[in-house]
Design a binder for these strands. Sequence first.
DNA 1: AATATATGAAAGTATTACTATTAAACCGAA
DNA 2: TTCGGTTTAATAGTAATACTTTCATATATT
Lengths: 222, 222
Amino acid sequence: MESLPIHITINSELYTKNPESSDLGKKIVRTSIEMINDLGFESFTFKKLGVAIESNESSIYRYFESKHALLVYLINWYWSWIEYKLVFATTNITSAKDKLNTAITLFTQEVKEDNSFTFINEVLLNKIIISESAKAYHTKDVDEENKKGFYETYKRVVQRVSDIVLEINPKFEFPHMLISTVIEGAHHQRYFSQHLPALTDVEEGKNNVVRFYTDLVQKTIV
Amino acid sequence: MESLPIHITINSELYTKNPESSDLGKKIVRTSIEMINDLGFESFTFKKLGVAIESNESSIYRYFESKHALLVYLINWYWSWIEYKLVFATTNITSAKDKLNTAITLFTQEVKEDNSFTFINEVLLNKIIISESAKAYHTKDVDEENKKGFYETYKRVVQRVSDIVLEINPKFEFPHMLISTVIEGAHHQRYFSQHLPALTDVEEGKNNVVRFYTDLVQKTIV
DNA sequence: AATATATGAAAGTATTACTATTAAACCGAA
DNA sequence: TTCGGTTTAATAGTAATACTTTCATATATT
């Protein structure tokens, strides 16, 4: 896909001070992505991040009120980016079936290149989504955070693709279930292939995740 | 299903001292299930559990070396129990298709009654699986723990049902992907229906989760 | 040059996830 | 019924986490 100098805007509820507004802010986000990948979300701390960026813990708290808030920010950035790619890739496609296949491929394929039109490494961010994103919404505060719009971008992406499903088959009863199953499922399969291979059938270079879910969706919505 | 006085044996790697060997041990497990449901896994601590059971934190550590270890124990108990139900429910069914449907129903239906042939409340345990089980394997120690057999019961259940899929269609390429997608997917849908309803199409009393996945599986394996 | 804003340094707090030690209670066998 | 072993309770302690607060300093704006 062509790389454009687009700008992804994040809901201001999701940070205390906009990390894009300063070099320090961008460094916090950029470095946190690397560190969450290396250490895992549990072992990642603002203290360690402070050391890594040669800044202070208290300065990081000026941008994000907690590491949970930072994770939610990253997840929203990811889904905004996917939404952009989705809209870009499906515009001017007239066939709903082609649009759906494009969307499913986008959700299930490995993210391999960092287009780097921004300060965010999308390859690493995709790995965080796969390994850590469930931790963002599996908390006792989900309901409250959901009301505040913390999961809007994800929901909007699911809605867009559900609408494509309904274009193809207006009588299909479970479009949201289908799309969220595909998205979460693809993430699980990528994780399992690395860590619990007995739970999957992923093989190097055979594109099995994309093929499996593309076929599953086509057959299911008929 | 008929309630039998069966006994579920848990791999002794999964505890320091077998909680089934004493009243205190059973109380630890029983009460931890209630508390993890009430507080969520993050806010649950051995200190709080000690207060609740009128025992001491240090006594709990004699049974489980950490709260993570306790969660892994519960998850294994759950999958052993599901495996038992699976084997029981599919024995004497000759049609592979019927066996598969039985399995899918078992995975996707809500657990509503506590058969209570044990000290474990299965309804609450099922809720923990839905909300917290991803936290068990989304850690930096997965690979190590997987080697030690911490996820054997889950893998065995997936294998059993994958074998049924292959009985129906020996050429189907992705049986493990399909089954793990259904299991994880059903858990997500139940969670979403409670907390992020925009991501699902679950409706009270309409059995949508079971219907959706049963239909999806049948169409996909053809 | 004055002022506002952003960042840094340091110290402090409550809580967590443990570990270690010792003493008391319990329990079965001689 | 007392001995020995095991189990549990009570207490204290540790290192780390997830912050908060305060104040000083650097930098940018007017």
